[in-house]
Design a protein around this nucleic acid. Sequence first.
RNA 1: GCUGGCGUAGCUCAAUCGGUAGAGCACCUGCCUUGUAAGCAGGGGGUUAGGGGUUCAAGUCCCCUUGCCAGCUCCA
Length: 671
Amino acid sequence: MKRPVREILADAISRDPSIIGAKLGAVVYDLHTPVEAEPSALEPVRTSTPEGLAVLRHSTAHVMADAVQRLFPGTKVTIGPATAHGFYYDFDKPSGPFTDEDLAHIEQKMLEIVEQKRPFRRTVVSRAEAHAHFQKLGESYKRELIDAIPEGEEISLYHHGEGADEWTDLCMGPHVPHTGYLRAVKLVSVAGAYWRGDERNPMLQRIYGTAFATPADLREHLRLLEEAKKRDHRKLGRELELFMFDEHAPAMPFFLPRGAFVYNRLVGYMRSLYERYGYEEVVTPQIFDKKLFETSGHLPNYRENMFLPVTAELLDKAKMDLRLGLHGATDPHSYREADKVRDEAVIGHLDDLERTAQKPMNCPCHCLIFRSRRRSYRELPWRVADFGRLHRYERGGVVHGLARVRSFCQDDAHIFCAPAEMQTEIQSFIDLLYEVYAAVGFAKVDVKLATRPDTRIGTDAQWDDAERALAAAVESRGLGYEVSPGEGAFYGPKLEFHIEDALKRSWQLGTIQVDYALPDRFGLEFTGPDGAAHRPVMLHRAILGSLERFMAVYIEHTGGAFPVWCAPEQATVVTVSEKQDEYAHEVVRALKARGLRATADTSSDKLGAKIRSARLLRVPYILVVGDKEVEARMVAPRSRDLDKNLDPLPLAAFVERLLGEAEPPRLAGRT
RNA sequence: GCUGGCGUAGCUCAAUCGGUAGAGCACCUGCCUUGUAAGCAGGGGGUUAGGGGUUCAAGUCCCCUUGCCAGCUCCA
């Protein structure tokens, strides 16, 4: 017999009012929905969990749409889902975009609805009833949504409020019991968005908002948003003189000396690990005959993202031939004749004009190296690393600081191995990856296994092997993972590694991807123990991903306060007066002699001003030297990370201390 | 690429209705000789993103180009 969830879980709910629904299997039901289940089969869903939050936010989206339609009659609703950090709702508002004042009014109206604790109700209707209901309201977008619901599936409406106050939306649910649960709500921003995400469709007005279980959670979230604004890597990049951009090379970063230092330190760190994990590094060209990318499949599949450079020689020749072609027209008075000759000349030269291409990826280079001579099974797995510069043409609207650029480099490597070696190689890669993430301070890592998409190449047996090897490797390291069905590349499945930064934002950095296709396209072979030719499998892998993007994440993660091991300046000596200048330089020399990075501020500023500038640059240690320190040959350090002054100590002792912090951390238990 | 917005000194920002381009910081010079988050004074710095138009007069209004920002879409 079916009973409302509220009745079945009555005991639990009376003890814990944050229960807003219950899970039966994988489906979340709201409290008023009747289900047939024993209390033990129902798992309570609380607002404190991600699932519960999603319900809460989706309910908030309904209340916002209700408020909007009360304040702006004639505005049509479309869709309003929960997102990772809140929710949005898209409206068709004839009078144009919402303003900030509008948002304040809407928020006010939402609060009224929340205070009235209007209950959410669910009703199931027929397709015809649903159409009739929304047609009456003039909600033309809902028609499309109703039509998109598959035959045989329940069509449900959600209502909150009663009588004249009732507001109804087409919705699968579930929802919180009543609007009173929505007490920590904030509208964040407005944006344009296309109906169904398609730029050929009308532009809608989207309002982003967020909602939390408690006001304290909301405050914390808003604090993180503020903090994220302060830490924006584009702002810090300028302030800390890490990198710059210039209109002459849009979306291609220039790393300034301080930024380049950090960049190279990261590369150096990866190199040091490669040595330990059995990688070899190669250096490969930038520009290739386009035939390479026809072989690799990039030109057919990736052409719109590629830079196709042309040499001046080719260009001049084409221009010259064009001119000759035009002059050679038999009848200069006939446009048609001249046009024909010109068009033929143009077409004839187009191939030449794109005879070369900048590489967008390194993998084809490594395939060329692999097949440049015979390979034995004895030299597999062959792990080949490349910090080559890559160029991809990204569309104008998508570039963003260092996070999305057109010129970048990856901590890229490819592993060529026998299919049987895959799993071991993936395991070793996972070890390497976790060591790196620990060193740069990312403690929380989520693993996703992206499996075969509908359109794919390769045999099912290959896909089975590849997916199994990836899953087994993760499991062998005692890690959990989530499956993203159908999200793999068309040529193979992959693992994605997502980290959470200091502001609780998630970024995908690392990946390892199985590829049978490229070895096929390049006809790669190795000689097995049986003397016969075998085809290797190729693993594409990166840990930091693109160095540029990683810098963006890392700058925001650290707030520009790089750890001692990779900070461009580890210590700066500030003098109390110019009487200590000589000693300050001596301190710098002593630090540099041990491979440490130090500068002295001997400007005519007062001590307070010098300390302020050094702090703004996030220098890990500020060494104050006055007469007392000169006399005793000591330094008085101020620690950035402890945010306090340390006891003065002899120069030599400080050097030792700094040396102890100057190497990247290593995973315990490794050599 | 699409929608909307923005572009004024190295940075952050002013400039009324279309009417003399300005401030703070930074930089340079000098003074000050300093004890834990901004010492004082003076100076240099601008084809107002670029180009075109309207006007007696354009940073301001219109058009084009370019770059950037927010979002959408994209990220085999």
